[in-house]
Simulated assay, not measured.
Amino acid sequence: MMISDRNQSTAVIFILLGFSDYPEFQILLFLVFLAIYVITVIGNLGMIAIIIKNPKLHTPMYVFLKHLSFVDFCYSTAVTPKLLENLIAEDRTIISIKGCITQFSFGVTCVVTEMVMLAVMAYDRFVAICYPLLYTVSMSPKFCALLVTVAYSGGIIPSIVLTYSLLVLSFCETKIVNNFVCEYSVLLSAACSDTHFIEIMLFIFANLSTFCTLIIILTSYLFISITILKMHSASGRYKAFSTCASHLTAVTIFYGTILFLYCIPNSKNSWFVIKVGSVFYAVVIPMLNPLIYSLRNNEVKETFRKLMDLRISQ
């Protein structure tokens, strides 16, 4: 019986509809998403190179930003190439069960890691503004390395658990996915096995990672706001706020999109909105983050200019 089930699982495929409802816009969408992906790759890898190159940027805030850029690059690479393939290839809509699980696994790792990394960056700003005299001691290199390890572990562990729970299932139904990415709910709907326990695990991991990191961020910014309001100098308040502005913008966009998708009712009329929201957090946000942090940071912009001048002189 188990052999039969496994044979059925190997034959299962998923049909990703993507944006096939709009055939007249396929080429235009391909060019737009290709441009976004190129900007994402250049922006995030460029941010990593700038931080590594400039010794002035070897501080906890930029160490975390470097890892955030790496996660954004990985997440975009896990999703966007398949999206581009779906728009131009003849058999673009077909993905195997193994391919679907692999994409889901990378997606979970990157999303949860980014959540934890954003929470870590909020804590870093909290220490820097509320306890500036203790910042160097509190955010030591060893402690920063520990926080980075926690962030990656927070993404990898749920991914391993959920991926394993999918691999032990038997699949016996080809599914049509009205999206361009493989989601956990779609994978479970194609399973022949009992999925009740796995759905509980998903609920726990999803809510724990989302709300715990959000609580850390909100608490950090609550104390930051109180500290800034107590400052007597207007220039001091502006300087303190400017160090948080980029991170606060990135957090608002990221969590705003995710919470918006959670709140969408499960109806056929909402599928287009879900697709657009998925594009935003999976494709657009990884492009926006390096732009947000670089445009508001003079040290990053100055290092970029020096690298470009050096490149031109060569």
Rank of each mutant, 00 (worst) to 15 (best):
S220L: 10
N266Q: 15
F304C: 07
C100P: 11
G154Y: 01
M231D: 07
V41C: 14
H58C: 06
N44D: 12
G277R: 05
A282F: 13
T80R: 00
T40C: 06
I312P: 01
Q26C: 04
F241D: 03
N207S: 09
T174N: 15
M287I: 03
V186A: 13
I224T: 08
S193V: 06
C130F: 11
T113M: 10
T93Q: 13
I312R: 04
S69C: 11
R6M: 11
R6C: 06
E114T: 14
G277F: 03
T109C: 13
V273L: 15
T59M: 00
E85W: 13
L83I: 14
L310V: 02
I160G: 14
P286A: 07
C192P: 00
L248H: 12
M1H: 12
I51M: 06
F104K: 03
T113P: 01
A89V: 05
F304E: 06
G154W: 02
T257K: 05
T136D: 15
N178Q: 14
I274A: 12
T174R: 08
I216P: 00
F205S: 09
L307I: 01
M201V: 06
Y262K: 13
V127N: 09
W271N: 08
V12M: 04
I274M: 14
N86A: 11
N179V: 08
I258P: 00
V168T: 13
D21G: 03
I27N: 14
K56E: 13
V273H: 08
I88S: 00
S209N: 09
Y123G: 05
S76P: 02
L65Q: 07
M231Q: 13
F180Q: 04
T243R: 04
V284C: 07
L166F: 10
T257L: 15
L147G: 13
G43Q: 05
I50K: 07
D309G: 04
E302K: 08
I264E: 08
C130L: 08
M121N: 05
P55L: 08
V279N: 09
Y135G: 01
C172A: 15
S242T: 12
I52E: 11
F180E: 04
L147F: 11
I156V: 14
Q8S: 14
G18N: 02
Y22G: 04
L68T: 11
M61S: 08
M47Y: 05
Q103Y: 02
Y262L: 12
K82V: 00
L187A: 04
F260G: 03
G277N: 04
F19I: 00
M61W: 04
T219K: 09
A240T: 01
L34D: 05
T163A: 11
